[in-house]
Structure formats: C-alpha cells, structure tokens
C-alpha cells in the first residue's frame, strides 16, 4: 500500500480581477503531499489562500493549473483536478469536508436525519433501513442523541450543530477529511469537546485530516505536520515539533510570536510585523514576504525563493533559511512552565 495519499503538484488557482486583464492568484504553484493517517495543517492569515487550496483538493473549486493525485486504497490513482465526472465519482465518497460555520452550513429546511443521510443517498444505493442504521451509528459516534434526528438544525446549539456537520462528513466513511476552520466558531469549552471528538474519530476510523486553521494553538494540538501559507504560497512545511521549536521562515517566527499566550508571566519580546498582507492582485516582487520582513536584503526583492528542504522533512522558502537563527515561542513558554514547576 502506498504511504502517500494525496500528491499536490504545482497547484494554482487564479481569478479574474476587476479589470479583465488582471489576474489574482489565490493559490500559486503549491506542491506538497499528504501521507496516509496523518494530520497535516494549513495555517495562515485570512486571504492567504488556505481555504481556496482546501476547496481545490475536494473539487469544490476547479484548480486553474497543476495536478492533485489521489491514491485510493484500491485501484488506480485519480487526478482530482482533471478527472472526468465519472472517474471522480469513484473517489468522491473518500474525500469529505467539514465547514467552519455551523450555522450557515446546514440547510434549515432539512431535518438532521436528511442532512446526515444526504451524502449516503448521493453516493450509494441503500435501502431506508440501511440508511437509518448508518446514520444512527455515526450519530452515536459523534455524540448526537439519535432521538433528536427528526428535528431541524435551529433546535441545536453551535457545538451540537458542528457535531451534525461532522456526522454528515463522516457518514460515507471517508479516508481524507478536510476540516476548514472546523473549531474556530466555537466557544472554548465547546471547542475542546469538538477537538477531542475529531481526534478520537480519527483514531477509531483511521482517517487522514487536512486541518485548515488560523489558530496556531489549535494546530499545534492536533497536527503531525504543519504548512504555513502566505499570499498563496507555502512558505514553510515541517513536522509540528520542528516548526514550533525551530522555525526557518521569518513569517513563521512572526506568526508564532503574535499568538497571545494564556499566561500573564509568559511575557516576551514580541516581533510586531509592519503593515498588512499585500494585495494578491499586485504581489511584491521577489519574495512576497519581503516588504514586512525584518531580515530582508536586496536579493529578497529580486529573486523569489523556492520551497526547498533545509533539514530532513523540513521545507522552507527563504534565501537565508540556513543562516537565520529564528526564535521560537515554544521554548520560551516551556522555560516558564518548568521554572514554575521547579
């Protein structure tokens, strides 16, 4: 069996701008792969293209260029970007999406049973009894009371709705689940419940997650590997512990430093980035991060850095990834925790 589940190569998604000649690259030339059974996260700020990339991978959007090979457990690989309708249908049930907003992603005019069973009806021919059995089993796994299945979404709280969204995504026994900000809209105490649920289900059902989030503490908690995106490109990709202890890209360093730490003694010197994310319709020359980067040189404005391997399994797109000694907040926080314990 192939260890690789999804292989993305040179994926680009562009939109026409306000002027016909203008092209906006939401995702540009992204390559990475997803291994079977892992949790890989995409982090970045709004507008960096993480959601667009996620949508391209489930064919919610059609990518403009590039390839995205999906390797099913049986049968030939399928290119999600170029596959025909019938070919794609073969793997459709394997790839599912969990949405961010538990309010707008559920149809208010459908009962919970209809919402959860819809993917089954679309992908399989099942009898009413089989449908009921599958829905009841997934409802139980996701912590929904099966006696509430005939109700409508409005009768449920935010956390319960998110469970409905998760049940709908998992009812087809998918292999790859794209969680697009799946816990961001929830309150902290509910967020913890849903994160635990996602983790338990992943182990139980042996799924692979692509976890899209802007929240680094959530990402650190759940992932095996993390990819950081900036202005449509992956600027760093590394195993979680590597990325948080030894960031190799200045943007990752700044991002880590900007996360508020829930510890009043965890004060640290903060790297404040100047300005904001540039307009993707007119990206800066060279490295797209260079106008905000405190380590920039002349070369950064001229030459675009390639995403390359700095250490085994650790990729970064910075000319100076080897030389820079970037700080991680991880170690600092750890120091605080140990000094408190000692």
């Amino acid at each position: 069996m192939n260890d690789r589940m999804l292989q993305v190569e040179g994926l680009t998604k562009q939109y026409r701008g306000q002027r016909r000649s203008e092209w906006i690259r939401a995702v540009s030339d992204v390559s990475f792969d997803i291994r079977r059974g892992e949790v890989i996260s995409l982090v970045g700020e709004s507008g960096c293209g993480k959601t667009t990339l996620g949508r391209c991978l489930v064919r919610g959007l059609k990518a403009s260029e590039g390839r995205c090979m999906y390797y099913p457990e049986e049968g030939a690989p399928v290119d999600i970007v170029s596959a025909g309708h019938r070919e794609f249908k073969r793997v459709r049930k394997d790839i599912q999406l969990i949405f961010q907003d538990p309010y707008s992603s559920l149809n208010p005019r459908m009962t919970v049973f209809d919402i959860i069973s819809e993917p089954l009806r679309a992908n399989f021919k099942l009898s009413r009894r089989e449908l009921e059995e599958r829905v009841a089993s997934i409802a139980e796994k996701t912590g929904l009371n099966p006696s509430y299945l005939q109700r409508y979404p409005h009768a449920f709280s935010g956390g319960q709705r998110q469970r409905i969204g998760i049940a709908r995504a998992l009812v087809t026994n998918p292999k790859l689940v794209v969680c697009d900000e799946a816990v961001s809209a929830l309150d902290v105490s509910i967020q913890a419940q849903i994160m635990n649920l996602l983790k338990d289900l992943q182990e139980q059902l042996q799924m692979t997650y692509l976890f899209i989030s802007h929240d680094l503490s959530v990402v650190e908690h759940l992932s095996d590997r993390v990819a950081v995106m900036y202005l449509g490109r992956i600027v760093e990709l590394a195993p979680k512990s590597e990325l948080f202890t030894r960031p190799r890209h200045p943007y990752t360093e700044a991002l880590l430093s900007a996360v508020p730490i829930p510890d009043p003694d965890g004060k640290r010197e903060r790297i404040l980035l100047d300005g904001e994310v540039p307009n993707p319709a007119a990206p800066p020359s060279g490295c797209s991060f260079h106008p905000r980067c405190s380590y920039r040189t002349e070369r950064c404005a001229l030459e675009q850095p390639k995403l390359r391997e700095i250490a085994p399994g650790h990729l970064a797109a910075c000319h100076y990834a080897e030389e820079l000694m970037l700080r991680s907040t991880h170690e600092q926080v750890k120091e605080n925790v140990t000094s408190e314990a000692g």
């Binding site: 967020q191 994160m195 680094l216 503490s217 650190e220």
Partner: peptide, 12 residues
C-alpha cells in the same frame, strides 16, 4: 480546556 502552544498534547 484551552490548547496551549508548547503544552503537552493528548486530550484536552
């Protein structure tokens, strides 16, 4: 219940 950077993994 809050996930912390640098915290121990596992269940929240």
């Amino acid at each position: 219940s809050i996930p912390r950077i640098g915290g121990v993994g596992g269940r929240l």
